[in-house]
Amino acid sequence: MRTKNMIVAVLCATLVPVVGQTLADEFSQADLERWSQQYMEVANQGRQLWVSADLGTNGVACAQCHPNAANTHPETYPKFQKQLGKVANLWEMVNWCIRNPLEGQPLAADDPRMTAILSYVTYERRGVALDPGKH
């Protein structure tokens, strides 16, 4: 099995230069910086949503209970959430908060605003080890 894989790998490595393309996973420092900046832009959009009342209808903002997104524990998801009655993803819990304390309409999982919120929340917990299921 191992030998076979190695052969395949060698074949690829020798074939690619022949057709004159760069490796698919090659990237430059400039790429890294640009992508990181793109992520930070989205995280900053999330921060703006976090402190604004725009997600709800009653003036409440996420940051009122979660300054710096503290106590959101993105590293513990998925986990059981009593409010949701099941093991849930963080975005589902975000929607619970939007519905309840904020009295707003929930967002689709792939709504750019949800992506922004999750980007911000996760950024504030960067460096913390994953601990799924923890309470």
Binding site: F80, K82, Q83, L84, G85, K86, V87
Partner: peptide, 9 residues
């Protein structure tokens, strides 16, 4: 309802 009438996984 589920806030008090609990359902779990």
């Amino acid at each position: 309802c589920v806030s008090c009438h609990v359902i779990e996984q």
